[in-house]
Design a protein around this nucleic acid. Structure first.
Lengths: 115, 115
DNA sequence: AAAAAATGTTCTTTAAAAAGAACACAAGTA
DNA sequence: TACTTGTGTTCTTTTTAAAGAACATTTTTT
């Protein structure tokens, strides 16, 4: 489960594999292998380093069911999503509207964003 | 801390290094090295196997302060210890009386004992 | 007291973790 | 469209975990 958990938590945090590797001081090749379960038995030291960057406890990485299914995003983004929903734009529609994605990207780069 | 914790918990359980090694399917040479901190970075799989036999959670092994300082013994032994205390025999005295130890060993072998 | 068994350590060897490239591919930018 | 940059994968190599003896000591049994 460790690999899936790391992958999932990394995605939630919205950081890249390379960034997680760099910040946790774990080689990205190895991290890649762990996430894809080519390697399933990392040492505690590796796990602890990754947990630290992902900002979770070690046991969260070992667990077979991750706590919340919800993304953690900045409150401005929550407000933004709420606004989209108010306008009748749900996440199914988003997949079809490339322009909307572009707009979101633009908005993101304009407002400074991210951590 | 992992090494010290395993050693401590093993002693509390009253089992030998060899027995822990056999039951957890970890080589005793390696287990010996972990307990003496010649090796400080075991894999999760090794830790999980050891935790299972020691009957504690993984995080207990990773913790830097073990929960209770008290031994876990079968209730018959608690009663036995209570009786000794009632007779005015405290643990300081025990260290000086080899005969008492012998008696306890005999009692242990007679009553079947251990798990 | 000698023999046998149990306990933990110290070797040597093997298997696997972890690193460090070089790599392929997509995405962004000129 | 070409050029650069960012992302994750796939190699090869190095390091270390982990095993499997054989070993030295102590304890137990006869």
């Amino acid at each position: 489960m460790i690999g899936k958990n790391i992958y999932e938590l990394r995605k939630r945090k919205g950081i890249t594999l390379t960034e997680l590797a760099d910040r946790s001081k774990v080689s990205k090749s190895y991290l890649s292998n762990i996430e894809r379960r080519l390697n399933k038995n990392p040492s505690i030291q590796v796990i602890e380093k990754i947990a630290l960057v992902l900002d979770v406890e070690v046991k969260a990485l070992l667990s077979n069911k991750l706590e919340s299914e919800h993304l953690e995003v900045e409150k401005e983004w929550v407000e933004f999503v709420v606004e989209l929903k108010r306008l009748g734009i749900n996440k199914e529609i988003i997949h079809e509207y490339r322009e909307l994605i572009e707009f979101i990207k633009w908005k993101k780069s304009e407002t400074g964003n991210q951590e």
